[in-house]
Design a protein around this nucleic acid. Structure first.
Length: 861
RNA sequence: GGGCGCGUAGCUCAGUGGGAGAGCGCUCGCUUCACACGCGAGAGGUCGCUGGUUCGAAACCAGCCGCGCCCACCA
């Protein structure tokens, strides 16, 4: 205890490592796979990239999930937080390629097999970093059952899904236009493309017509004209009607281009005539297929012009080629106009390169048949989004879903289980028998394997106990940016392969922006490292701060909220230190260690006074609202409500009021009870400090086991006491009135002031008022030198030289003015006949009561 | 082009039909026997603008202004 007495501050760094070790050694986070999903509770963590380091988004999301998980665990549910990392094809491959480059070699030089081995070695060395960082935050994941999306079992799940969808005809190979990322040299999906505003030049180029005349087309990409195979106009366009069916001559190249009609062409944009380049423009590709046009490719996968572009341009970069083509057209006098043209163009989210639309042989997945039941699941409430508005966003995207390009030209990932031999194609879990087969070199989009996360992590396709116990999971928590990339696809795959939704609720949490409102990002230098925050303020403070600043909308990072959390941890620690050292000291003196405290139970509260009944009543409300707020994903309400309870009610009021009674065993029991319940109530939010204090509770109060394993305290309605709440409310109004008066009239806060209570309804609470407002109350009938209005009467201040009567008079004038204006307002309201007639009776009555009270107070003055 | 969200105290944000709130910051006071990461008392707001619904609007509806995000194949 003497040790505790000297610890005047909560020191997180000293405590956290010790507590973490106890948690991990307890096995509490690793439940036996038993029971049914309905009685169990599980969350699958959004798997961080193996390459990743904990950023603020992870920290918030992990805190949210851990708060849910810890609450569920304390509610007695078998609770599993499924942990793992994602192989993150592109990010990881890039990382290792950079290493190789630094070593003066490359993946091509190593060859595929050696390269993949190299990535595995890298993963062994660095892949657990983020998992260790999660421990620092206090995350109670099942660390003993960590998964990886390239584990052998996981690979089996991925291949099985691929083969099944292939057999159903949902996965197919096709030569189509894809988003080609020249930086990555791979196809990417629509969702990995981001639009950026760019100002290009819009050129008007004249194409001569066979037999005389010309047609002028508009383009921002003159270099692609080398692959033009037609010119299109709108069939209803008077200007060009006569030209349909004629032939244009492609400048520079000399190719003959049919002039075709297509509704797609807008008459009011550009020149109304459109050059058609099926090989390098998605729209033109569709038009080309519709009209059976030739598809010519002049831009290669390396982002340079191919031989088909002609000797003059082959080998040039796209940019250089554009300049060369424009020069050539100028020399021909073919450029009729140019203007600056701001528009959005696609860039790769992965490499940052400008996306090059190319025709390429890739694997695609038809999504509509999978989307349909996934839309129904949300519509029927089997999956619910919080906040609800995301359901519409989800549904809208799902109802317009397009084929998903799932093949990537990478080496790190799930290699596609398809083999070729001449014209034969084989798809299966095992390689085909016989000689001469060659496996498709491509790997699957990382999100393909992520889509299986909630069940592949539990052992599917094996029918494992874990799968039976924890699927479906309860909640998925994430930011909105991966609703389509990941959440929607998990729902589709869960329904397709488990016939069950993967989770019941999807919580979409805030995106935390930099304090200045910009995106938090390493490259912008706006990132804040959560580990540094933990170092500086503690994990509890970080968790509290993140929850307190979170919302249903994006928020700016608030260092103040973290500091608020640090104050809460410190306050709770000091309040506990006060209670524990005092009670221990007094019991030692009296030689009874634990009277009134049963051996294995939280001490039963013994309410002797109105403030005891009050704090017990307030405690029930705090427990209820904290739990309800967490369950409703209103984490800021849970965190800030806890702060308010601890500071305003437990510390500033109850502990102050109970101080003089601490020799009383009943008061000790009540204080200990409130303290232990508060610790338990707060634990899901600030687990470290609460666990630490729990371990310091006297024998008989603290169980030997962990607070993390203790039951979450239920709100007991029998302890609600509206009378006590009203009484203590009145008490504090009176205290505040006296304190305010003291300040205003310059009476120092320390000395006790002789006074008399001329008010009714103060039998139980007068002593507390005297204590907190520093009054010496007596029944002295002498004359009051000053009168302080309090609810139901006044405090009469008796003879004292400490009172400045002029200041008192000034205060009286101010208070009268305030009261009079409030009375006027109430009177006005009640004089309004329509208010009295139409407003609900209780509202009118409340107004009348208020008016009466105000009038009494004015009279007291 | 379609959709969503947000404009409340100097700052960051709660609040959704009956007397404008929190944290930080600011002012004043306090070595009150747990905590100065503390305690007490204060100052500070046309709740973006306009109109409507209502006895009553920061909240509900409409329009406007400003900011942010998502989706979308007009060269």
């Amino acid at each position: 205890m003497s040790d505790l007495e000297s610890r005047t501050r909560f020191e997180p760094a000293e405590v956290e490592a010790r507590i973490t070790r106890r948690w991990l050694e307890s096995g509490l986070f690793s439940p036996e796979p038993e029971g049914a999903p309905e009685e169990n509770y599980s969350i699958a963590i959004p798997p961080p990239n193996v390459t990743g380091a904990l950023h603020m988004g992870h920290a918030l999301n992990s805190t949210i999930q851990d708060t849910l998980i810890r609450l569920a665990r304390m509610e007695g549910k078998r609770t599993k937080w499924i942990l793992g990392t994602d192989h993150a094809g592109i990010a990881t491959q890039k990382q290792v390629e950079q290493l190789l480059a630094a070593e003066g070699t490359s993946r091509q030089e190593l060859g595929r097999e050696a390269f993949v081995q190299r990535v595995w070695r890298w993963r062994e060395e660095y892949g657990s970093r983020i998992v260790e960082q999660l421990k620092r935050l206090g995350a109670s994941c099942d660390f003993e059952d960590e998964r990886f999306t390239l584990d052998p079992g996981y690979v089996e799940a991925v291949l099985k899904v691929f083969v099944a969808l292939y057999d159903k005809g949902l996965i197919y190979r096709d030569n189509r236009m894809v988003n080609w990322d020249p930086g990555l040299r791979s196809a990417i999906s629509d969702l990995e493309v981001e639009d950026r505003e760019v100002t290009d030049t819009l050129y008007s180029v004249a194409y001569p017509l066979e037999g005389g005349g010309e047609i002028v087309v508009a383009t921002v990409r003159p270099e692609t004209m080398l692959a033009d195979t037609a010119v299109a106009v709108n069939p209803g366009d008077e200007r060009y009607r006569d030209l349909i069916g004629r032939t244009a001559i492609l400048p520079i190249v000399g190719r003959r281009l049919p002039v075709i009609a297509d509704e797609y062409v807008k008459t009011d944009f550009g020149t109304g005539a459109l050059k058609i380049t099926p090989g390098h423009d998605p729209n033109d590709f569709e038009i080309g297929r519709k009209h059976g046009l030739e598809e010519i490719t002049v831009i290669g996968e390396d982002g340079r012009m191919t031989a088909a572009a002609g000797e003059r341009f082959a080998g040039l970069t796209v940019e250089a080629c554009q300049r060369a083509v424009v020069e050539a057209l100028e020399a021909d006098g073919a450029i009729r106009a140019r203007e600056d043209y701001p528009h959005v163009v696609p860039f790769s989210h992965r490499s940052g390169a400008r996306v090059e639309p190319l025709i390429s042989l890739q694997w695609f997945m038809r999504m509509e048949p999978l989307a349909e039941p996934a839309i129904a699941a949300v519509r029927e409430g089997r999956v619910r989004f919080v906040p609800e508005r995301w359901e519409r966003v989800y549904e809208q995207w799902m109802s317009e879903i397009r084929p998903w390009c799932i093949s990537r030209q990478l080496w790190w990932g799930h290699q596609i289980p398809v083999w070729y031999r001449d014209d034969e194609v084989y798809c299966g879990l095992e390689p085909p028998r016989g000689e001469g087969w060659e496996r498709d070199p491509d790997v699957l989009d990382t999100w393909f394997s992520s889509a299986l996360w909630p069940f592949a992590t539990l052992g599917w396709p094996q029918d494992t106990p874990a799968l039976r116990a924890f699927y479906p999971t309860n909640v998925l928590s994430t930011a909105r940016d991966i609703i389509f990339l990941w959440v929607a696809r998990m729902i589709m795959m869960g329904l397709a392969f488990r016939e069950e939704v993967p989770f019941e609720q999807v919580y979409i949490h805030s995106v935390i922006q930099a304090p200045d409102g910009r995106r938090m990002s390493k490259s912008l230098g706006t990132g804040i490292d959560p580990l540094e925050v933990i170092e500086a303020h503690g994990a509890d403070a970080t968790r509290f701060g993140l929850l307190a600043m979170s919302s249903t909308q994006d928020v700016r990072y608030s260092a103040e909220k973290v500091e608020q959390g640090q104050r809460l941890a410190n306050k709770l620690f000091n309040a506990s230190r006060f209670a524990l050292t005092n009670i221990a000291r007094r019991r030692e003196k009296h030689g009874d260690v634990g009277a009134g405290v049963g051996p294995d139970v939280t001490p039963a509260p013994v309410a002797r006074s109105v403030e005891d009944r009050w704090i017990l009543s307030r405690l029930q409300r705090a427990k209820r609202s904290t739990r309800e707020a967490i369950e409703a994903f209103e984490f800021h309400r849970a965190a800030l409500g806890l702060y308010e309870f601890v500071f305003d009610e437990l510390c500033d009021r109850y502990i102050e009021l109970v101080k003089p009674r601490l020799d009383d065993e009943d008061a000790q029991a009540t204080l200990l009870h409130v303290l232990t319940e508060t610790l338990a109530m707060a634990h899901p939010i600030i687990p470290f400090v609460t666990e630490e204090i729990w371990s310091l509770l006297p024998a008989g109060v603290a169980r030997d086991d962990l607070l993390a394993a203790a039951p979450y305290p239920a709100a007991d309605d029998a302890l609600l006491d509206p009378q006590a709440e009203a009484a203590v409310e009145r008490q504090f109004e009176a205290v505040q009135a006296v304190r305010g008066w003291r300040q205003a009239v310059g009476v120092p806060p320390g000395p006790r002031l002789p006074a008399r209570l001329d008010a009714s309804g103060y039998d139980d609470i007068a002593a507390g008022i005297a204590l907190l407002a520093r009054l010496e109350l007596s029944g002295d009938g002498g004359e009051a030198i000053a009168t302080i209005p309090v609810p139901g009467g006044a405090v009469a201040v008796l003879r004292s030289e400490a009172v400045d009567l002029e200041a008192h008079a000034r205060r009286l004038v101010e208070q009268r003015a305030t009261l009079e204006s409030e009375i006027q307002r109430a009177e006005g309201k009640l004089a309004n006949e329509r208010f009295v007639a139409k407003a609900p009776a209780p509202v009118v009555q409340a107004e009348r009561d208020k008016l009466e009270r105000l009038r009494r107070e004015l009279a007291e003055l």
